[in-house]
Design a protein around this nucleic acid. Sequence first.
RNA 1: GCCCGGGUGGUGAAAUCGGUAGACACAAGGGACUUAAAAUCCCUCGCCUUCGGGCAUGCGGGUUCGAGUCCCGCCCCGGGCACCA
Length: 854
Amino acid sequence: MHTEYDPGAVEAAAQQYWNANGSFRAVEDPSGEKFYCLSMFPYPSGRLHMGHVRNYTIGDVIARYQRMLGKNVLQPIGWDAFGLPAENAAIKHGIPPSQWTRSNIETMKGQLKRLGFGYDWSRELATCDPDYYRWEQWLFTRLMQKGLAYRAKATVNWDPVDQTVLANEQVIDGRGWRSGALVEKRDIEQWSVRITDYAQELLDAIDTLHGWPEQVRTMQRNWIGRSEGVYMEFGIAGSDQALGIYTTRPDTVMGVTYVAVAAEHPLASARAEQDADLAAFVEECRQGGTTEAELETMEKKGHRLGLDAIHPITGESVPIFVANFVLMGYGTGAVMAVPAHDQRDWEFAERYGIPRKQVIVSADGSDCGIADCAYVERGMLTDSGPFDGLTSEQAFDAIADWLAERGKGEKRVNFRLRDWGVSRQRYWGCPIPVVHGADGEVRPATDLPVRLPEDVVVDGSGSPLKKMPAFSELPDGGQRETDTFDTFFESSWYYARYCSADCDGVMLDERADYWLPVDQYVGGVEHAVLHLLYARFFHKLMRDEGLVDCDEPFANLLTQGMVIAETWYRENADGSRTWYNPADVEVNRDDKGKLLGGVLRADGEPVSFGGVEKMSKSKNNGVDPEALIERYGADTVRLYTMFTAPPEQSLEWSDDGVEGAARFLRRLWSLAAGNAEAVQAAEAGGADTDERAKDARREVHAALKKALFDFDRQQFNTVVSACMTMVNTLQKLDATKPAQAGVLREGLGILLRLLAPIAPHVTHLLWRELGFGDDILDAGWPEVDDGALVQDSVQYVVQVNGKVRAKVSVSTDADKSAIEAAALADENVRRFIDGVEVRKVIVVPGKLVNVVAK
RNA sequence: GCCCGGGUGGUGAAAUCGGUAGACACAAGGGACUUAAAAUCCCUCGCCUUCGGGCAUGCGGGUUCGAGUCCCGCCCCGGGCACCA
């Protein structure tokens, strides 16, 4: 055995062994317990970053841990291969997106393999392969037949130069991010999927996701946004038409003093044709952006429609306004306004001189004035005719019933969730499998898969598919749809396809029911809503198609924290900042190690500290994983990322910390290498004859107990701590003494297995070198020997009035009075209780004694 | 504004049921080995101290024999949502 730890050689040997033995090939085995562990697959952007390394290390630690517990583990990997960056790279470098993507996959695959992750590579998939996307095309055609996919006009951000739809985040100051052209709102035909049909089920099932972080469950609930309210119809003066509105506060209906409609509301459009002022206002509203920031700064404005609405209960006339804050996309695009009891209505009324009418007062007589702001609490109705004296809750039902009896309204449940618009005017995506027939009929494509032509030139102006008659024109005169799917479509079902990755006749086979649901899903919290909601929805679509039999795709979810690092900058003359990589900065600290400042190594001049931020290109504070692996080895990088912070917290990068992790593995190596012969020859037992051996054995088993607990709750940083404690303990043993050699052998056997999920290569090799067996993966999981934890005497902490005054050693079998007597006999304790009355003595068995004295 | 997290040494963090606050590391300081450096090993390491002890888990109260942990009120930081009627 080499005395020097050489991670490069160790890791190559371990990986070669796993490859040769097919160690991570997962095979269905109904006789055993299965465990499906999945990390969110990467977008093949070019190279792995530290966030990937952290994500996949967490997943791999869990997968290997479950494997060593004896479960049948599946841990697959693949590529989220469609997407916009490939098109941008194509424009910039003149390479087809497919080529760029596939070469990135090769690079990143090499990096993943170098990290030693236990993936079943036989199930690898890339979403840009027709063998993959043909099945989502097939499912989409089924959805069309079921009426769950439909085509409708939707308002989008349209870039008139690039001839494409832009996502909200691609619109900067009202202009296209690439073309710089003024973005227009445009209504175009888009394919949508009826996720709203599943809104209630998606909401209800959140309650069953016990293995998900509460934060993510709350975000999904908010996103679905269920509200209970009442739909009611106002009359329109001088017309027999009705204006439907939705409200969650029907109890305030008697306080309505105006009604507001969205600029896009048909009523507004109709009136605008005769009213130039109104038309101008409607146009102004349409120009307004849809982003959050714009909405926040937007002034609340309105314009009289020139029509009155007729109150459904009182029959009174109230004015109708067009208001820029009313959203066409929610409810009916029209609201009743109650300035007395809604803050937004209150402000609007203030501005336009509309009266306020108070109809709710507090039930307990506390202040409920509306002079300074709206009174928005629920309470008791007043000035509300037949409903006077009812509570808000009673009035909700009474008013809904009153309206329903007269056919003027009904209770209604509303969701914030919108149907999922899946069309993108993009090239590098899965073609939507639809044909626009020469007869004008739109029908599902029958010649699946509809293959995306890969040998194309992308110039950024519109989708190249539109310019490819060979793709779009069909022999019968029909036209293929040239839009592609939103890339969330591919990532919504990949977890299921891994189960049946080689299936070429169907989307999924019975193996999906063996593996699903995913037992542990690991990924970034940034996917808390979109990806995780779409995937849940897709799962239910597949269930209803008979493809899977469980209701939810992911039983447990772990959202890992960000990887962050120091940032350093210099201010430029124009106020902008130039960011310097922390690796190029020499940091100065004071005597206590507190950060004082830094200088740039290149020129010795100072740079300013910019705080600790998420690793990013823009702040130039990234660390390249490959360089680290090159220098320290994969085990060190894995160990560092596990040790520095618990998985869900952010991880602050520190070069010194990596050095510390490397140091620990070197110490482990020299502990094993320095005692290899003694350990191989050692016999178990005999620890009781040697105090030191006995103590060490107790410490090892105490650390083991802690580590098992922490593995179970996925707090891997303290698992590593426990392993470090074991090394510290075992290092003190003298292997020439048989009893101590025995404990060393037992301790190393425990330690290597605990560490194996985290640092798999070095533990694999040491396990073999020390003669424990051939394959640590199949060695079984260590168990605590409670006998080793037993002590002859226990150290009690003695407190006087809650303050620690002494520590006394008491025989383990001592009874309460003996413990109490020992505590009170202590010299230092006496000093504090002499001359005062002892009122009570509390004894916590095995732990402490608290003497309560006057 | 609303909803979640969080605030503990110079730093990352730990503390399972309310029971010794700071495990395990990093940094720093001192020492050994070395021609020297690296590596390695040993010691010190919350603050104050008259060396008895006192004070310390964002701030102020409370419950308790005992509070980082539970309750009430506040401050700060991070994340999410937000004209949703």
